[in-house]
Design a protein around this nucleic acid. Structure first.
Length: 501
RNA sequence: GCCCCCAUCGUCUAGAGGCCUAGGACGCCACCCUUUCAAGGUGGAGAUCACCGGUUCGAAUCCGGUUGGGGGUACCA
């Protein structure tokens, strides 16, 4: 048996979709597992909606996910590589035209002169008669005379493929045997438009045939297209590839995942600070499982064990909570230097957006890693977690400044005492978490305060928030001067709000 | 409407006739750890395996039907 050839054929009419990424991933995995070849082909025939920016987005984000292809375009608008080039549908029109001519010559297809208006009327009549929509066959048996008559009237024909009566079936690699009666596929179907351009069903089959695809692994939404494809492969005299239809990725309401109801662009997840490792791990487990209880798996791990037998048949809801959990798992596995490198662009973005006043250096980030790594659900959450370090000033709400068990007067006393204690440290020598904590605890004890309350008051004074990394590490990161200045500022705002009250 | 596909905790899933009084994970709840928040640990709630009927000594697993959900029904891809 020859090595499998599989493909993903996205159309650059939108950014890389989660569903496309998942299908690409499964094809990629299948190829890697079986020693096959994974092909990327661009379905770029929709001139109206195609853009180079989308093409770029698709290729770039597949690369980002780590899903590389053996044959196909190297980059957006760039060169193709592989023995079956070109890998852009637009550049394969000669093939499509030749194949159509061939079918026409063998009377497996015929020119159709029906106008959209006629077709529309047919459809309406069928609807009224409660019939399934189908082509009525008006042009199926035109005589040569009748054809030339229409040609003379300057009618440009489309090309229609003859569908004979019978049953088309296949053994689906994930669903088992599937059968369709050709009576239910809508009659003779169009393969070439009147302007000469091929329709999707025809173009894919011609391309898949000439690129020698052995397995077509795609979404379940293509099941009902499969009989047409099989008929076309047969007519073209090409061996019929194996089909495997993957379950759909669903919106929370169990409908097919869509932009309207879910976030579908891979780029958006990327921008939100999801790791490619996490996304790939998550996507692979949507509709497939190892058969064991392991679930934190790298792309290589998965490629080593992927199989179509463990592909689920039912659709799977995209559970973002689970993705976030997986993302946290992967963030915690990262080497510190790697984390720093990945964090920087997000802090850059925080700066651009005005959420922080300057971007820290890698050196500044390094000592922070131990305290933030286990607290980050996403890379984008770093700014939220420790952004106070790079903000010129923090806004402190007097209401949250006062710990639950304290009143304003106690808070004022607490902050003044804490300031005193902290300022007596001889920075930078003593300004270390280990040096700061004991005197602060001693202070709390001496005054009869719960340490937690005192710490909370200082935490809010210095960061503006109630949830932060450990207090003393935060103080050290901030530096003595800024800590003191912020406590002063907090005391000041608390006093003012008291005066106002 | 018609055709096709699907059906195990809220969610992702394990399960290929006895190992299942159905396992894991996310989420949720509680406790532990603890200066807050996380992370981590422990425990808990949560599924009459959609329903009905077969087959079988025995069914979540096989068969049929019902119901429910989804997908497809274009000179879109």
């Amino acid at each position: 048996m020859p090595a499998p050839r599989v493909r993903i054929a996205p159309s650059p009419t939108g950014p890389l979709h989660i569903g496309t990424a998942r299908t690409a991933l499964f094809n990629y995995l299948y190829a890697r597992r079986t020693g096959g070849t994974f092909v990327l082909r661009l379905e770029d025939t929709d001139l109206a909606r195609n853009t180079i920016a989308f093409e770029e987005d698709i290729l770039e984000n597949l690369h980002w996910l780590g899903i590389g292809w053996d044959e196909g375009p190297d980059s957006a608008g760039g060169e193709d590589h592989g023995p079956y080039a070109p890998y852009r549908q637009m550049q394969r029109t000669a093939d499509h035209v030749a194949a159509a001519k061939d079918l026409l010559a063998r009377d497996l297809a015929y020119p159709c002169y029906c106008t959209p208006e006629e077709l529309d009327a047919d459809r309406k009549a069928q609807e009224a008669a409660h019939e399934a929509p189908h082509y009525v066959g008006r042009c199926a048996n035109l005589t040569p005379e009748e054809r030339s008559e229409r040609e003379a009237a300057a009618k440009r024909p489309a090309v229609r493929f003859r569908v004979e009566q019978g049953v088309v079936g296949w053994h689906d690699l994930v669903r088992g045997d599937v059968e369709f009666d050709t009576a239910n596929i809508g009659g003779d179907f169009l393969i070439v438009r009147s302007d000469g351009s091929p329709l999707y069903h025809f173009a894919v089959v011609v391309d898949d045939a000439s690129m020698e695809m052995t397995h077509i692994i795609r979404g379940e939404d293509h099941i009902s297209n499969t009989p047409k494809h099989i008929l076309l492969f047969e007519a073209l005299g090409h061996e019929i590839p194996k089909f495997a239809h993957l379950p759909l990725i669903l919106n929370p309401d169990r409908t097919k995942m869509s932009k309207r109801k879910s976030q579908t662009a891979v780029a958006d997840y990327r921008a939100q600070g999801f790791l490619p490792e996490a996304l790939v791990n998550f996507l692979s487990l949507l509709g497939w499982s190892t058969g064991t209880e392991e679930e934190i798996l790298s792309l290589d791990d998965i490629a080593g064990r992927f199989d179509l037998e463990h592909v689920q048949k039912g659709g799977a809801i995209f559970d973002k909570d689970r993705l976030e959990w997986l993302n946290g798992q992967w963030i915690r596995k990262l080497e510190p230097e790697d984390l720093i490198e990945r964090l920087l662009p997000f802090l850059e973005a925080d700066h651009q957006a005005g959420r922080i006043d300057r971007v820290p250096t890698a050196e500044e980030l390094r000592p922070l890693i131990p305290i933030i790594q286990e607290r980050l659900p996403t890379l984008a959450s770093a700014g939220d977690l420790v952004g106070f370090l790079w903000q010129d000033k923090v806004t402190v709400d007097p209401a949250v400044l006062v710990p639950k068990r304290w009143d304003a007067a106690t808070t004022l006393a607490g902050l003044r005492a804490a300031r005193e204690t902290i300022s007596s440290s001889t920075a930078p020598i003593d300004f270390e978490a280990d040096e700061l904590e004991p005197p602060m605890r001693a202070l709390a004890e001496a005054r009869g305060w719960k340490a937690g309350d005192l710490f909370m008051a200082v935490r809010v004074a210095v960061t503006g928030r109630t949830a932060t990394p450990p207090l003393f590490d935060s103080l050290v990161a901030l530096g003595r001067d800024r800590v003191l200045a912020r406590i002063d500022a907090a005391i000041d705002t608390l006093e003012r709000s008291e005066d106002a009250a």
